[in-house]
Simulated assay, not measured.
Amino acid sequence: MNVDSPYEVLRCYHFINKNETDSDFDSSDDSIDLVHSEWIDDDDIFYEFVGKSRINEENSKYPHEPDFPSKREDAYWYVSPEKDFGCWIIFKYKKPMLIPRSIEEAEKGWSWKVYKSPIPLHNHNASLSLASKMAWYIDKDGYGQYVLLANGKISTISSPKPRFWK
């Protein structure tokens, strides 16, 4: 994390004070939490967050298979049609969705990286050490965006929902 970036600091603030924000993430969902005491004893999590790869690139099966389990029962592994990236899919929307033909045709959210689609239509471009921890999270309103998983919990989101969003 770049502590000099106000945007990144606000993302952390969003989760630390999640009960005080108008977030689209359900604050009663125990799978969403930024501060995890169990991270202290997990060396892999530390190396993943600082971007150091503890993965032997020769043995990695990414993107065809994840290098790390999601540690969630509601996540499944997805590989893009071009086979150039993979991510976990976490679907909280209760209705069926059609896949837009392109990111340009998808109904946009509060950022170009947030849109209605049951699968991601753009590559997350995460490093190999983080790629198997990336998830496409579709919220209760059908908007999807990338999140980072740590020990099965959502630790960082790419574009927090602004308070003013419908």
Rank of each mutant, 00 (worst) to 15 (best):
V3N: 12
V3S: 11
D4K: 15
P6N: 11
C12A: 14
H14P: 00
H14W: 12
F15R: 05
F15H: 09
I16V: 15
I16W: 13
N17G: 03
K18N: 11
N19E: 11
N19M: 05
N19W: 08
E20F: 07
T21V: 12
D22C: 10
S23P: 00
F25L: 15
S28C: 02
D30S: 07
D30W: 00
I32W: 04
L34K: 08
V35A: 07
V35T: 07
H36C: 04
S37P: 02
W39K: 06
W39G: 01
D41W: 03
D42W: 02
D43L: 11
D44S: 13
D44Y: 08
D44Q: 14
F46G: 04
F46W: 13
F49H: 11
F49S: 09
S53W: 07
N56Y: 11
N56S: 14
E57M: 08
E58H: 09
E58A: 14
S60A: 11
S60M: 06
S60H: 05
Y62I: 11
P66W: 01
R72D: 08
E73C: 02
D74Y: 09
D74I: 08
D74K: 09
A75G: 13
A75P: 01
Y76C: 10
W77T: 06
Y78M: 07
S80P: 03
S80E: 02
S80W: 00
P81V: 07
D84M: 04
F85K: 07
G86A: 09
W88M: 04
W88Y: 15
I90E: 00
I90L: 07
F91I: 10
F91N: 15
K95W: 15
K95A: 14
I99V: 15
P100E: 02
P100H: 09
R101Q: 13
S102G: 10
S102A: 10
I103C: 01
I103T: 01
E104R: 11
E107I: 15
G109C: 07
W110G: 01
W110Q: 02
W112T: 12
V114S: 02
V114K: 01
S117P: 05
S117R: 01
I119D: 00
P120Q: 09
P120H: 01
H122G: 00
N123E: 02
H124T: 10
H124C: 10
H124G: 05
N125W: 05
A126N: 03
A126I: 03
L128F: 03
S129P: 03
L130W: 03
L130H: 08
A131E: 01
S132H: 04
S132A: 12
W136K: 02
W136N: 03
Y137N: 13
I138T: 15
I138D: 00
D139S: 08
K140D: 11
D141A: 14
Q145H: 14
Q145S: 14
Y146V: 08
Y146K: 13
V147Y: 09
L148S: 11
N151K: 15
G152Q: 12
K153E: 10
S155M: 12
T156E: 13
S158M: 13
S159G: 04
P162R: 07
F164S: 12
